[in-house]
Amino acid sequence: MQLETRVYQKENNLKIGKLLKASARDFFGSHFLAKQLATRDITSQYRQSYLGILWAFIAPISSAFVWIFLSATGTVNLSDTGVPYPVFVFSGTLIWSIIIESINSPTSNTNAARGIMTKINFPKEALILSGIYKILFNSSIKIILLVILIFAFGVGFHFSLLLFPFAIIAAIVFGTTIGLFLTPISLIYTDIARIIGMGLSLLMYITPVVYTIPKEGLMKTVMELNPFTSLILTARDLALGNTPEYLSYFCGIFIASVSVFFIGLLFYRISIPIIVERLSA
């Protein structure tokens, strides 16, 4: 049997193509490890509580409820959304939370695995993949809730609802790709992680998550340029059976995300030794 040979030296004199291949191989090859890590985190999270998995439903409902309450009492006055407001808000916050979770997931998973990373050599791509698995799990619960709401409020079934999962996947790939590029620097400086957290919460206000795009003005321009807008609106339109307005922008972002995703993975891969060195020294 031919033994596998590894060479460790300072230069990354491997060809980009070879590196990409190795990175992709580790990403798809680490399915078992990723699944194991995701199952570990999910089960341990719910085992210590009586309500258990119910918590996965409680959190999104309560956050949507705040906006429903604000709108129903007239505290905030929002323009007509065309669909029952609870469904509108819930679908918006759902996709928004998935994108945010995806952006934070590479950083938080890598950070949580610091202890192992500085001691054991395993494919770090598994951390990214396990993050995606965890998001898929959380999202599927929220999607079930959304579907229930869609029928409860009489929006009814549209065939485009079947395409909704693709919109979710686009949101996850988009978010994870951004996360991959942010991870190395935000692991080194905690400032970066704070700035990102703050920036994202501000970003929500220039994205049509809980309200529609205004008919005119500066906000309309900003929102239309905002790539998050197309993700949220397309997903919502698919779920509620409207014609997606920003479909081409959405497709562009999706295709770009998928290809940039692998570059991000490569960047992550070559950055890990430097992070391990700086964190464990």
Binding site: L3, E4, T5, R6, V7, Y8, Q9, K10, L37, R40, D41, T43, S44, R47, Q48, G115, I116, M117, T118, K119, I120, N121, P273, I274, V276, E277, S280
Partner: peptide
């Protein structure tokens, strides 16, 4: 292979196993 050298070269043939930390990946609740 956890960190990269600044000079020189290591060539390793075969599977590498490390007994550096026992019980890596344990979750206390499970």
């Amino acid at each position: 292979g956890l960190i990269n050298p600044d000079a020189g070269k290591i060539t390793i043939n075969g599977r590498v196993g490390a007994l550096i930390e026992l019980g890596a990946g344990f979750n206390p609740i499970l």
